[in-house]
Nucleic acid binder design. Structure first.
Length: 415
RNA sequence: GGAAGGGUGUCCGAGUGGUUGAAGGAAACGGUCUUGAAAACCGUCGUGCCGGCAACGGUACCGAGGGUUCGAAUCCCUCCCCUUCCGCCA
Protein backbone atom coordinates (compact mmCIF):
# COMPACT_ATOMS: atom_id res chain seq x y z
CA UNK A 1 0.00 0.00 0.00
CA UNK A 2 1.23 3.47 -0.83
CA UNK A 3 0.89 6.54 1.36
CA UNK A 4 -2.24 8.43 0.25
CA UNK A 5 -0.46 11.68 0.96
CA UNK A 6 2.31 10.70 -1.43
CA UNK A 7 -0.28 9.88 -4.08
CA UNK A 8 -2.03 13.22 -3.53
CA UNK A 9 1.25 15.05 -3.99
CA UNK A 10 2.45 12.99 -6.97
CA UNK A 11 -0.59 11.79 -8.89
CA UNK A 12 1.02 11.84 -12.33
CA UNK A 13 4.11 10.03 -11.12
CA UNK A 14 2.09 7.28 -9.44
CA UNK A 15 -0.13 6.88 -12.51
CA UNK A 16 2.92 6.65 -14.77
CA UNK A 17 4.77 4.18 -12.56
CA UNK A 18 1.68 1.98 -12.33
CA UNK A 19 1.38 1.93 -16.09
CA UNK A 20 5.03 0.95 -16.37
CA UNK A 21 4.18 -2.06 -14.22
CA UNK A 22 1.20 -2.80 -16.46
CA UNK A 23 -1.14 -2.29 -13.53
CA UNK A 24 -4.41 -0.62 -14.38
CA UNK A 25 -5.36 1.92 -11.74
CA UNK A 26 -7.22 5.19 -12.03
CA UNK A 27 -5.44 7.64 -9.77
CA UNK A 28 -7.86 10.45 -10.61
CA UNK A 29 -10.76 8.34 -9.46
CA UNK A 30 -8.87 7.38 -6.31
CA UNK A 31 -8.24 11.04 -5.51
CA UNK A 32 -11.89 11.90 -6.12
CA UNK A 33 -12.91 9.22 -3.65
CA UNK A 34 -10.30 10.51 -1.25
CA UNK A 35 -11.89 13.94 -1.42
CA UNK A 36 -15.38 12.57 -0.90
CA UNK A 37 -14.09 10.55 1.98
CA UNK A 38 -12.53 13.53 3.68
CA UNK A 39 -15.60 15.66 3.13
CA UNK A 40 -17.85 13.05 4.73
CA UNK A 41 -15.38 12.59 7.55
CA UNK A 42 -15.41 16.29 8.34
CA UNK A 43 -19.20 16.40 8.57
CA UNK A 44 -19.21 13.34 10.80
CA UNK A 45 -16.59 14.75 13.11
CA UNK A 46 -18.53 17.97 13.40
CA UNK A 47 -21.62 16.07 14.50
CA UNK A 48 -19.64 13.97 16.91
CA UNK A 49 -18.20 17.13 18.41
CA UNK A 50 -21.76 18.40 18.92
CA UNK A 51 -22.75 15.13 20.52
CA UNK A 52 -19.74 15.21 22.83
CA UNK A 53 -20.31 18.78 24.02
CA UNK A 54 -23.95 18.03 24.63
CA UNK A 55 -23.20 14.91 26.63
CA UNK A 56 -20.51 16.73 28.60
CA UNK A 57 -23.03 19.39 29.61
CA UNK A 58 -25.37 16.75 30.99
CA UNK A 59 -22.87 15.10 33.25
CA UNK A 60 -24.30 14.07 36.57
CA UNK A 61 -27.79 15.44 35.90
CA UNK A 62 -31.01 14.10 34.55
CA UNK A 63 -31.47 15.24 30.94
CA UNK A 64 -34.75 16.85 29.93
CA UNK A 65 -37.03 15.46 27.25
CA UNK A 66 -35.77 18.00 24.71
CA UNK A 67 -32.16 17.16 25.43
CA UNK A 68 -32.81 13.48 24.96
CA UNK A 69 -34.59 13.96 21.67
CA UNK A 70 -31.89 16.36 20.44
CA UNK A 71 -29.30 13.72 21.23
CA UNK A 72 -31.36 11.11 19.50
CA UNK A 73 -31.60 13.24 16.38
CA UNK A 74 -27.86 13.69 16.33
CA UNK A 75 -27.41 9.97 16.63
CA UNK A 76 -29.69 9.20 13.71
CA UNK A 77 -28.07 11.80 11.50
CA UNK A 78 -24.66 10.40 12.42
CA UNK A 79 -25.71 6.85 11.60
CA UNK A 80 -26.81 7.97 8.13
CA UNK A 81 -23.57 9.79 7.38
CA UNK A 82 -21.48 6.99 8.79
CA UNK A 83 -23.02 4.43 6.50
CA UNK A 84 -22.40 6.74 3.52
CA UNK A 85 -18.80 7.07 4.56
CA UNK A 86 -18.44 3.34 4.89
CA UNK A 87 -19.36 2.67 1.28
CA UNK A 88 -17.05 5.44 0.06
CA UNK A 89 -14.32 4.04 2.25
CA UNK A 90 -14.75 0.52 0.86
CA UNK A 91 -14.28 1.70 -2.73
CA UNK A 92 -11.43 3.91 -1.68
CA UNK A 93 -9.63 1.06 0.08
CA UNK A 94 -10.03 -1.26 -2.88
CA UNK A 95 -8.54 1.31 -5.21
CA UNK A 96 -5.76 2.27 -2.84
CA UNK A 97 -4.73 -1.34 -2.28
CA UNK A 98 -4.57 -1.88 -6.01
CA UNK A 99 -1.97 0.84 -6.50
CA UNK A 100 1.43 -0.83 -6.91
CA UNK A 101 4.65 0.38 -5.33
CA UNK A 102 6.59 2.95 -7.34
CA UNK A 103 9.96 2.14 -8.88
CA UNK A 104 13.24 4.04 -9.11
CA UNK A 105 13.86 5.94 -12.33
CA UNK A 106 16.66 3.65 -13.46
CA UNK A 107 14.29 0.67 -13.67
CA UNK A 108 14.36 -0.85 -17.17
CA UNK A 109 11.03 -0.29 -18.90
CA UNK A 110 9.09 -3.03 -20.63
CA UNK A 111 8.20 -6.61 -19.78
CA UNK A 112 10.25 -9.71 -19.13
CA UNK A 113 12.20 -9.19 -22.36
CA UNK A 114 13.54 -5.91 -20.95
CA UNK A 115 15.12 -7.52 -17.88
CA UNK A 116 18.69 -6.32 -17.87
CA UNK A 117 21.62 -8.64 -17.16
CA UNK A 118 24.02 -7.02 -14.71
CA UNK A 119 26.78 -9.59 -14.58
CA UNK A 120 27.48 -13.25 -14.95
CA UNK A 121 29.70 -15.75 -13.13
CA UNK A 122 31.06 -19.20 -13.90
CA UNK A 123 31.71 -21.31 -16.96
CA UNK A 124 28.66 -22.19 -19.00
CA UNK A 125 28.75 -25.75 -20.28
CA UNK A 126 27.28 -27.28 -23.42
CA UNK A 127 24.30 -29.64 -23.52
CA UNK A 128 26.45 -32.48 -24.72
CA UNK A 129 25.99 -35.63 -22.69
CA UNK A 130 23.73 -33.94 -20.14
CA UNK A 131 20.53 -35.66 -19.12
CA UNK A 132 17.80 -33.29 -18.05
CA UNK A 133 17.19 -33.42 -14.30
CA UNK A 134 13.92 -35.31 -14.63
CA UNK A 135 15.30 -38.06 -16.84
CA UNK A 136 18.32 -38.28 -14.56
CA UNK A 137 16.21 -38.45 -11.41
CA UNK A 138 13.74 -40.97 -12.77
CA UNK A 139 16.46 -43.22 -14.06
CA UNK A 140 18.01 -43.31 -10.60
CA UNK A 141 14.67 -43.46 -8.83
CA UNK A 142 15.29 -40.23 -7.01
CA UNK A 143 12.44 -38.15 -8.47
CA UNK A 144 8.95 -39.62 -8.76
CA UNK A 145 6.19 -37.49 -10.25
CA UNK A 146 3.97 -40.41 -11.21
CA UNK A 147 3.36 -41.46 -7.68
CA UNK A 148 3.12 -37.81 -6.67
CA UNK A 149 0.24 -37.54 -9.12
CA UNK A 150 -1.32 -40.70 -7.73
CA UNK A 151 -1.52 -39.43 -4.17
CA UNK A 152 -1.96 -35.70 -4.72
CA UNK A 153 -2.16 -34.67 -8.37
CA UNK A 154 -0.12 -33.23 -11.18
CA UNK A 155 2.99 -31.31 -10.16
CA UNK A 156 3.41 -33.12 -6.88
CA UNK A 157 6.43 -35.35 -6.48
CA UNK A 158 8.56 -37.46 -4.21
CA UNK A 159 12.30 -37.04 -3.79
CA UNK A 160 14.14 -40.18 -2.76
CA UNK A 161 17.60 -41.41 -1.95
CA UNK A 162 20.62 -39.12 -2.14
CA UNK A 163 18.59 -36.09 -3.21
CA UNK A 164 17.20 -35.89 0.32
CA UNK A 165 20.54 -35.49 2.12
CA UNK A 166 21.53 -33.17 -0.73
CA UNK A 167 18.55 -30.96 0.05
CA UNK A 168 19.38 -30.87 3.75
CA UNK A 169 23.00 -30.07 2.91
CA UNK A 170 22.00 -27.13 0.72
CA UNK A 171 19.90 -25.73 3.56
CA UNK A 172 22.67 -26.26 6.09
CA UNK A 173 25.11 -24.44 3.87
CA UNK A 174 22.62 -21.63 3.31
CA UNK A 175 21.92 -21.34 7.03
CA UNK A 176 25.57 -21.15 7.95
CA UNK A 177 26.24 -18.52 5.30
CA UNK A 178 23.25 -16.50 6.50
CA UNK A 179 24.47 -16.85 10.09
CA UNK A 180 27.75 -15.30 9.00
CA UNK A 181 25.80 -12.24 7.87
CA UNK A 182 23.95 -12.11 11.19
CA UNK A 183 20.63 -13.68 10.23
CA UNK A 184 18.60 -15.48 12.89
CA UNK A 185 17.24 -18.84 11.73
CA UNK A 186 13.49 -19.26 11.99
CA UNK A 187 10.84 -21.84 11.30
CA UNK A 188 7.35 -20.50 10.80
CA UNK A 189 3.65 -21.35 10.67
CA UNK A 190 2.90 -22.97 7.32
CA UNK A 191 -0.57 -21.48 7.32
CA UNK A 192 -1.53 -17.88 7.89
CA UNK A 193 -4.74 -15.93 8.20
CA UNK A 194 -6.06 -13.88 5.30
CA UNK A 195 -4.99 -10.58 6.76
CA UNK A 196 -1.35 -11.67 6.84
CA UNK A 197 -1.52 -13.15 3.35
CA UNK A 198 -3.06 -10.11 1.72
CA UNK A 199 -0.95 -7.72 3.78
CA UNK A 200 2.12 -9.18 2.18
CA UNK A 201 0.56 -8.92 -1.26
CA UNK A 202 -0.50 -12.53 -1.69
CA UNK A 203 -4.19 -12.52 -2.45
CA UNK A 204 -6.12 -15.55 -1.28
CA UNK A 205 -9.19 -14.36 -3.18
CA UNK A 206 -9.90 -13.13 -6.66
CA UNK A 207 -8.88 -14.26 -10.09
CA UNK A 208 -5.17 -13.97 -9.53
CA UNK A 209 -5.38 -16.40 -6.69
CA UNK A 210 -1.99 -17.94 -6.16
CA UNK A 211 -2.18 -19.51 -2.74
CA UNK A 212 -4.13 -22.45 -1.35
CA UNK A 213 -6.95 -21.81 1.08
CA UNK A 214 -8.08 -24.20 3.80
CA UNK A 215 -11.76 -24.87 3.45
CA UNK A 216 -13.92 -23.62 6.28
CA UNK A 217 -11.09 -21.83 8.07
CA UNK A 218 -9.44 -18.47 7.78
CA UNK A 219 -6.18 -20.19 6.93
CA UNK A 220 -4.03 -20.15 3.82
CA UNK A 221 -1.00 -22.26 2.98
CA UNK A 222 2.06 -20.07 2.71
CA UNK A 223 3.68 -19.52 -0.69
CA UNK A 224 6.94 -18.55 1.01
CA UNK A 225 8.26 -17.98 4.52
CA UNK A 226 8.25 -14.30 3.58
CA UNK A 227 4.56 -14.22 4.47
CA UNK A 228 4.68 -15.40 8.10
CA UNK A 229 7.97 -13.60 8.70
CA UNK A 230 6.51 -10.27 7.59
CA UNK A 231 3.51 -10.92 9.82
CA UNK A 232 5.79 -11.69 12.76
CA UNK A 233 6.21 -8.00 13.56
CA UNK A 234 2.75 -6.83 12.40
CA UNK A 235 1.23 -4.10 14.59
CA UNK A 236 4.54 -3.58 16.37
CA UNK A 237 6.62 -0.53 17.01
CA UNK A 238 10.24 -1.63 16.91
CA UNK A 239 12.86 0.21 18.92
CA UNK A 240 15.38 2.10 16.83
CA UNK A 241 18.27 0.20 18.39
CA UNK A 242 16.78 -3.18 17.42
CA UNK A 243 17.01 -2.51 13.69
CA UNK A 244 17.95 -4.06 11.41
CA UNK A 245 16.24 -7.37 12.18
CA UNK A 246 17.48 -10.23 10.04
CA UNK A 247 15.76 -13.59 9.69
CA UNK A 248 16.43 -16.62 7.57
CA UNK A 249 13.27 -18.72 7.41
CA UNK A 250 12.99 -22.36 6.45
CA UNK A 251 9.64 -23.61 5.26
CA UNK A 252 7.77 -25.36 2.51
CA UNK A 253 6.25 -23.16 -0.19
CA UNK A 254 2.83 -24.08 -1.58
CA UNK A 255 1.80 -22.60 -4.90
CA UNK A 256 -1.25 -23.09 -7.04
CA UNK A 257 0.55 -22.07 -10.23
CA UNK A 258 -2.83 -21.87 -11.91
CA UNK A 259 -2.49 -21.32 -15.61
CA UNK A 260 1.25 -21.75 -15.47
CA UNK A 261 1.34 -24.97 -17.46
CA UNK A 262 3.17 -24.97 -20.73
CA UNK A 263 6.27 -22.88 -20.67
CA UNK A 264 9.13 -24.32 -18.65
CA UNK A 265 6.82 -26.65 -16.84
CA UNK A 266 8.83 -29.83 -17.05
CA UNK A 267 9.92 -31.59 -13.90
CA UNK A 268 10.85 -29.69 -10.78
CA UNK A 269 10.95 -26.23 -12.36
CA UNK A 270 7.36 -25.33 -11.55
CA UNK A 271 5.70 -27.43 -8.86
CA UNK A 272 2.98 -27.03 -6.24
CA UNK A 273 5.27 -27.58 -3.29
CA UNK A 274 8.94 -27.16 -2.50
CA UNK A 275 11.12 -26.37 0.48
CA UNK A 276 12.76 -23.03 0.64
CA UNK A 277 15.23 -21.04 2.67
CA UNK A 278 14.27 -17.38 2.65
CA UNK A 279 16.20 -14.29 3.72
CA UNK A 280 14.29 -11.43 5.27
CA UNK A 281 15.25 -7.96 6.48
CA UNK A 282 13.41 -5.32 8.48
CA UNK A 283 15.41 -2.08 8.41
CA UNK A 284 15.29 1.70 8.50
CA UNK A 285 14.25 3.34 5.24
CA UNK A 286 17.65 4.90 4.68
CA UNK A 287 19.34 1.50 4.92
CA UNK A 288 17.18 -0.56 2.59
CA UNK A 289 19.14 0.12 -0.58
CA UNK A 290 22.30 -1.06 1.11
CA UNK A 291 20.63 -4.17 2.51
CA UNK A 292 19.33 -4.99 -0.91
CA UNK A 293 22.89 -5.10 -2.18
CA UNK A 294 23.98 -7.26 0.75
CA UNK A 295 21.17 -9.74 0.13
CA UNK A 296 22.15 -10.05 -3.50
CA UNK A 297 25.75 -10.50 -2.47
CA UNK A 298 24.78 -13.28 -0.08
CA UNK A 299 22.81 -15.02 -2.80
CA UNK A 300 25.74 -14.76 -5.18
CA UNK A 301 28.06 -16.16 -2.56
CA UNK A 302 25.78 -19.14 -2.12
CA UNK A 303 25.62 -19.79 -5.87
CA UNK A 304 29.37 -19.61 -6.04
CA UNK A 305 29.72 -22.04 -3.16
CA UNK A 306 27.37 -24.36 -5.03
CA UNK A 307 29.45 -23.76 -8.17
CA UNK A 308 26.37 -22.92 -10.19
CA UNK A 309 27.06 -20.64 -13.19
CA UNK A 310 24.65 -17.74 -13.02
CA UNK A 311 23.75 -14.31 -14.22
CA UNK A 312 22.40 -11.45 -12.16
CA UNK A 313 19.46 -9.66 -13.74
CA UNK A 314 17.75 -6.38 -12.96
CA UNK A 315 14.02 -6.91 -13.31
CA UNK A 316 12.11 -4.56 -15.63
CA UNK A 317 9.09 -2.57 -14.50
CA UNK A 318 6.55 -4.70 -16.36
CA UNK A 319 7.90 -7.88 -14.78
CA UNK A 320 7.74 -6.57 -11.19
CA UNK A 321 5.00 -7.51 -8.76
CA UNK A 322 2.86 -4.89 -7.07
CA UNK A 323 4.85 -4.67 -3.81
CA UNK A 324 8.33 -4.49 -5.35
CA UNK A 325 10.26 -1.25 -5.58
CA UNK A 326 13.33 -2.90 -7.02
CA UNK A 327 14.16 -6.50 -7.74
CA UNK A 328 17.05 -8.64 -8.92
CA UNK A 329 16.89 -12.24 -10.06
CA UNK A 330 19.72 -14.70 -10.10
CA UNK A 331 19.39 -17.09 -12.99
CA UNK A 332 21.23 -20.41 -13.23
CA UNK A 333 22.78 -21.65 -16.43
CA UNK A 334 20.68 -24.34 -18.07
CA UNK A 335 22.94 -26.41 -20.32
CA UNK A 336 19.93 -28.00 -22.00
CA UNK A 337 18.29 -24.69 -22.87
CA UNK A 338 21.62 -22.98 -23.45
CA UNK A 339 20.18 -20.05 -21.56
CA UNK A 340 19.70 -18.74 -18.03
CA UNK A 341 16.62 -19.51 -15.95
CA UNK A 342 15.33 -18.12 -12.69
CA UNK A 343 16.81 -19.56 -9.51
CA UNK A 344 16.62 -16.85 -6.85
CA UNK A 345 14.98 -13.52 -6.47
CA UNK A 346 15.62 -10.55 -4.22
CA UNK A 347 13.27 -7.62 -3.67
CA UNK A 348 13.22 -4.35 -1.83
CA UNK A 349 9.54 -3.63 -1.18
CA UNK A 350 10.32 -0.45 0.83
CA UNK A 351 7.34 0.35 3.09
CA UNK A 352 4.70 -1.31 0.91
CA UNK A 353 4.18 -4.32 3.17
CA UNK A 354 4.99 -2.59 6.46
CA UNK A 355 2.34 0.04 5.81
CA UNK A 356 -0.35 -2.57 5.32
CA UNK A 357 0.69 -4.63 8.31
CA UNK A 358 1.52 -1.58 10.41
CA UNK A 359 5.15 -2.36 11.19
CA UNK A 360 6.87 0.76 12.45
CA UNK A 361 9.91 1.89 14.36
CA UNK A 362 10.59 4.85 16.55
CA UNK A 363 13.28 7.08 15.13
CA UNK A 364 15.71 8.96 17.40
CA UNK A 365 13.38 11.99 17.35
CA UNK A 366 10.70 9.78 18.86
CA UNK A 367 8.50 9.78 15.75
CA UNK A 368 7.16 6.55 14.36
CA UNK A 369 7.96 5.61 10.79
CA UNK A 370 7.25 2.55 8.69
CA UNK A 371 10.20 0.20 8.37
CA UNK A 372 11.42 -1.07 5.03
CA UNK A 373 11.33 -4.77 4.33
CA UNK A 374 13.32 -6.89 1.91
CA UNK A 375 13.24 -10.51 0.98
CA UNK A 376 15.47 -12.80 -0.97
CA UNK A 377 15.67 -16.46 -1.81
CA UNK A 378 18.55 -18.27 -0.22
CA UNK A 379 17.59 -21.57 -1.79
CA UNK A 380 14.42 -23.01 -3.29
CA UNK A 381 15.47 -26.62 -3.44
CA UNK A 382 13.40 -27.77 -6.40
CA UNK A 383 15.22 -25.36 -8.68
CA UNK A 384 18.54 -25.67 -6.89
CA UNK A 385 18.31 -29.40 -7.56
CA UNK A 386 17.84 -28.79 -11.29
CA UNK A 387 20.82 -26.44 -11.38
CA UNK A 388 23.03 -28.89 -9.51
CA UNK A 389 21.97 -31.98 -11.48
CA UNK A 390 22.31 -30.35 -14.87
CA UNK A 391 25.53 -28.44 -14.22
CA UNK A 392 27.47 -31.01 -12.21
CA UNK A 393 26.74 -34.11 -14.24
CA UNK A 394 29.85 -36.15 -14.98
CA UNK A 395 30.69 -38.54 -17.80
CA UNK A 396 29.74 -41.56 -15.70
CA UNK A 397 26.31 -40.03 -15.06
CA UNK A 398 26.92 -39.18 -11.43
CA UNK A 399 26.57 -35.73 -9.96
CA UNK A 400 29.64 -34.10 -8.48
CA UNK A 401 28.93 -32.66 -5.05
CA UNK A 402 30.41 -29.16 -4.70
CA UNK A 403 33.15 -28.98 -2.06
CA UNK A 404 31.13 -26.63 0.12
CA UNK A 405 28.35 -29.20 0.51
CA UNK A 406 30.52 -32.20 1.31
CA UNK A 407 30.92 -31.46 5.02
CA UNK A 408 27.15 -31.71 5.31
CA UNK A 409 27.01 -34.97 3.40
CA UNK A 410 29.49 -37.01 5.32
CA UNK A 411 32.23 -36.16 2.85
CA UNK A 412 30.44 -37.72 -0.09
CA UNK A 413 31.86 -36.56 -3.44
CA UNK A 414 29.33 -37.87 -5.94
CA UNK A 415 25.77 -39.09 -6.08
C1' G B 1 -13.10 -30.49 22.57
C1' G B 2 -15.13 -29.10 28.00
C1' A B 3 -14.74 -25.62 32.42
C1' A B 4 -12.98 -21.14 34.69
C1' G B 5 -10.30 -16.52 34.46
C1' G B 6 -8.26 -12.81 31.34
C1' G B 7 -7.04 -9.31 26.86
C1' U B 8 -5.95 -1.51 28.72
C1' G B 9 -0.25 2.79 26.12
C1' U B 10 7.01 0.76 24.44
C1' C B 11 6.47 -2.78 28.87
C1' C B 12 4.02 -3.96 33.76
C1' G B 13 -0.50 -2.53 35.85
C1' A B 14 -5.29 0.53 38.10
C1' G B 15 -9.94 1.70 36.35
C1' U B 16 -17.75 3.10 40.48
C1' G B 17 -21.79 4.42 32.65
C1' G B 18 -20.50 11.10 32.70
C1' U B 19 -13.62 16.30 34.51
C1' U B 20 -10.43 8.90 31.83
C1' G B 21 -6.63 9.66 26.55
C1' A B 22 -6.90 6.85 30.57
C1' A B 23 -4.10 6.43 37.93
C1' G B 24 0.59 4.24 39.52
C1' G B 25 5.16 1.99 38.25
C1' A B 26 9.20 0.71 34.70
C1' A B 27 11.83 1.94 30.32
C1' A B 28 13.25 6.08 27.25
C1' C B 29 14.57 11.26 26.64
C1' G B 30 16.03 16.30 28.78
C1' G B 31 17.92 18.61 33.21
C1' U B 32 19.95 19.29 38.52
C1' C B 33 23.70 17.06 41.49
C1' U B 34 28.76 14.40 40.49
C1' U B 35 35.83 14.64 38.48
C1' G B 36 32.85 10.78 35.59
C1' A B 37 29.10 7.15 36.20
C1' A B 38 25.31 5.12 39.34
C1' A B 39 21.69 6.64 42.85
C1' A B 40 18.42 10.58 44.12
C1' C B 41 15.48 14.67 42.59
C1' C B 42 12.79 17.83 38.71
C1' G B 43 10.61 17.75 33.91
C1' U B 44 8.99 15.46 29.14
C1' C B 45 6.82 11.15 27.40
C1' G B 46 0.47 7.03 23.05
C1' U B 47 -1.11 6.31 17.90
C1' G B 48 -3.97 7.29 13.53
C1' C B 49 -7.08 10.48 10.75
C1' C B 50 -9.23 15.50 9.37
C1' G B 51 -8.38 20.89 9.24
C1' G B 52 -4.26 24.59 9.70
C1' C B 53 2.08 27.51 7.01
C1' A B 54 2.29 26.88 12.19
C1' A B 55 0.94 27.32 17.31
C1' C B 56 -3.03 24.48 17.74
C1' G B 57 -8.09 22.61 17.20
C1' G B 58 -11.41 18.50 16.16
C1' U B 59 -12.17 13.27 16.00
C1' A B 60 -11.29 8.09 16.70
C1' C B 61 -8.83 4.20 19.20
C1' C B 62 -8.64 0.30 26.05
C1' G B 63 -8.44 -7.77 21.47
C1' A B 64 -12.13 -7.47 16.70
C1' G B 65 -17.11 -6.56 15.13
C1' G B 66 -22.09 -5.42 16.37
C1' G B 67 -25.78 -3.54 20.08
C1' U B 68 -28.02 -0.75 24.46
C1' U B 69 -27.68 4.62 26.09
C1' C B 70 -28.53 11.66 25.73
C1' G B 71 -23.41 9.65 26.98
C1' A B 72 -19.50 3.19 26.90
C1' A B 73 -12.64 1.12 28.48
C1' U B 74 -16.91 0.32 31.93
C1' C B 75 -23.48 -2.90 30.38
C1' C B 76 -25.26 -6.83 26.45
C1' C B 77 -24.27 -10.20 22.05
C1' U B 78 -20.94 -12.69 18.48
C1' C B 79 -16.09 -13.87 17.21
C1' C B 80 -10.61 -14.12 17.94
C1' C B 81 -6.54 -14.74 21.16
C1' C B 82 -4.02 -15.82 25.94
C1' U B 83 -3.62 -18.34 30.88
C1' U B 84 -5.02 -22.41 34.23
C1' C B 85 -7.48 -27.16 34.96
C1' C B 86 -9.65 -31.56 32.47
C1' G B 87 -9.78 -34.59 27.93
C1' C B 88 -7.04 -36.13 23.52
C1' C B 89 -2.29 -36.54 21.43
C1' A B 90 3.38 -36.59 18.15
Amino acid sequence: MLDIQFIRENPELVQEKSEQKNVKVDIRQLLQLDEQRRGALQKIEELRAQRNTQAAGLKGQRPTEEQISAGRQLKEELARLESDLESIQDNYNDLLQAVPNVTPDDTPLGGEEANAPVKSWGETRSAEGVLDHLAWGEKRQMIDFERGAKVAGAKFYYLKGDLVPLELAVFQLGLSLAAKYGFTPMTVPHMVNTRTASGTGYLPRGEERQIYKIEGEDLNLIATAEIPITGYHAEEIIADKDLPILYVGLSPAYRMEAGAYGKHSKGLYRVHQFNKLELYVFCKPEDSEQWHEKLVQLEEELCQALEIPYQLVRIAAGDLGGPAYKKFDIEYWSPLDQSYRELMSCSNVTDYQSRRLNIRYRNPEGKTEFVHTLNGTAAAFSRTAIALIENHQQDDGTIRIPEALRPYMGGKENI
